[in-house]
């Protein structure tokens, strides 16, 4: 369980609060989608939880352990963090060296290390690239390797900060499927940061942030129907709500509840006949 209590934080040289008295509790094995526009505070809170931010007010507890200078390494051991730009976290000369890096730091015995690296690369579909140089990979392939590096550590909590931004749509869908399987297999808690609501459908909860505060905490479909809240907080409406909006302007009566794409098609087909 992750407990965030009354966190307030401003970046150095900034007058505005990146986080403003934020409190939230995340249960074990929940899939959380953390959404909000650029600057809403979503990456900042993720970094606070991983002990990457200093000088905030409030308290963070991870699996019963209060986050402080003495516990930060133990807590970080439980968290796999995948950053937005994979170039910022590559260190190895080959893909497999890179994935092994975190394990080497933790003194994992070599036979086990080899196995975990292989397994992690297999999970993300990058086994055939094991001996390639990371710099020869495309952006999307790098993001997969970065994910492999995080899961090789067998964390309890996986935090992904816009970690699919460079994948193609199919790759993104595959990544979401991989996460779903991993979550079950390793009983993971997932915190996925994104500004794309279409990526949040698999989440148990969507946390919508703005101005360093929580604006909404709801199941995906419940949130999708709250179009004004989505727009007021700088996010793009899900596709079916965009279409509904255009049709409503023309004076067409529409159901209020959220319809996913297939339900929207059904509704249209019904009306067209």
């Amino acid at each position: 369980m992750i407990e965030v209590k009354n966190i307030t934080y401003s970046y150095p040289n900034s007058d505005s609060k990146a986080l403003n008295d934020l409190s939230v509790t995340i249960q074990d094995q929940q899939w959380i989608a953390l959404v909000g526009h650029n600057g809403s505070g979503k990456s900042t809170i993720a970094r606070v939880i991983d002990g990457l931010v200093e000088g905030y007010q409030g308290e963070v507890t991870v699996n019963g352990m209060p986050l402080n200078d003495d516990t930060v390494w133990d807590i970080r051991d439980q968290i796999g963090f995948v950053f937005q730009n994979p170039d910022n976290q590559f260190v190895g000369a080959t893909v497999q060296d890179d994935v092994a890096f975190g394990l080497e730091n933790r003194n994992v015995p070599r036979p086990e290390m080899v196995e975990r690296v292989q397994q992690a690369l297999e999970v993300v579909g990058m086994s055939e690239f094991a001996t390639r140089e990371p710099s020869s990979l495309s952006g999307g392939q790098k993001q997969r390797v970065a994910l492999a590096g995080a899961i090789a550590l067998q964390p309890k909590i996986l935090i992904l900060d816009e970690a699919t931004s460079m994948l193609d749509p199919q790759g993104r869908q595959e990544m979401l499927e991989i996460l779903k399987q991993m979550k079950q297999r390793f009983e993971l808690t997932i915190i996925m940061i994104t500004h794309d609501l279409s990526e949040t459908a698999m989440a148990d909860r969507v946390l919508l942030m703005n101005h360093g505060q929580l604006v909404a905490d709801a199941q995906p479909e419940k949130l999708f129907a709250r179009t004004q809240v989505i727009k007021d907080n700088g996010l793009e409406l899900p596709y079916s709500e965009q279409l509904k909006e255009q049709l409503a302007v023309a004076g067409i009566d529409l159901p209020r509840e959220y319809m996913n794409e297939d339900r929207m098609v059904e509704w249209l087909w019904d009306k067209l006949n």
Partner: peptide, 10 residues
């Protein structure tokens, strides 16, 4: 990929 990582309005 000039808009990777930017929100909808960006």
């Amino acid at each position: 990929e000039p808009t990777a990582g930017l929100d909808a309005s960006g």
